[in-house]
């Protein structure tokens, strides 16, 4: 069954289909907003706006393009608008490059699976994302965090795939330098280990 057929109940306005769609999409759209905005509370607000915008614009969605790519573009544009409005793009670029992340170093990073440390994880994520330039952040979120293909990320960003790869290289290097000192003893994907504590 194609995405187009899956979206048909949404286009018809079936309330239960909208409910099911919302339940599955909202967390992911929130993560996208968080990634692009690097701010938890604004991301929460933006995610709700984005869900409404996606639903409103669904009739104009082109099935040939692919739903995820189209949705990512809608969310990206909304987040760019928000950043533009509050001037955070400039602040994120200038402020972060000079000041660096605000979390305390060199304590070990918490494990993301630890619910009690969710707020700290969120804060570190936001700080790390803020350390990237807006373009680097967008490429990193779409490609490495969302798992989109380089081609889809390039289409959403309106740049070439090679530019996406360049941005990714810069973003990963910056994150390695930023998080590296706190990753000692961490197994990728396993969160913090007791040995990680200095």
């Amino acid at each position: 069954m194609s995405t187009d057929l899956i979206l048909q109940p949404l286009l018809r306005g079936d309330p239960e289909a909208i409910d099911a769609w919302y339940r599955r999409e909202h967390p992911e759209v929130y993560r996208l907003c968080f990634g692009f905005l690097a701010e938890a509370h604004e991301a929460d607000d933006a995610a709700q706006d984005a869900m409404l915008r996606i639903l409103d614009r669904l009739p104009s969605y082109d099935p040939d393009r692919g739903y995820r790519a189209w949705r990512n573009t809608v969310v990206l544009n909304l987040c760019r608008d928000r950043l533009r409005r509050r001037g955070a793009r400039a602040r994120a670029t200038e402020g972060a490059m000079r000041a660096g992340p605000t979390f305390a170093q060199p304590a070990a990073l918490p494990g993301p699976e630890d619910a009690a440390q969710a707020a700290e994880v969120r804060a570190i994520l936001a700080s790390a994302l803020t350390a990237l330039s807006p373009r680097e952040r967008e490429a990193f979120v779409l490609r490495d965090l969302q798992g989109e293909s380089t081609a889809d990320a390039a289409e959403a960003l309106g740049i070439s795939p090679s530019s996406v790869r360049s941005l990714l290289t810069l973003a990963r290097r910056r994150l390695r330098n930023l998080l590296g000192p706190r990753l000692v003893g961490l197994v990728p994907g396993a969160g913090a280990s007791p040995e990680a504590d200095r």
Partner: peptide, 26 residues
Amino acid sequence: ATRSAVAWMQNGYAALQPLTPSTVAR
């Protein structure tokens, strides 16, 4: 080092949950 940093970001990102529950948002 890069893989570890990116993997931590990916795991943290995947664990993110909206501050406002979906029910409230709906």
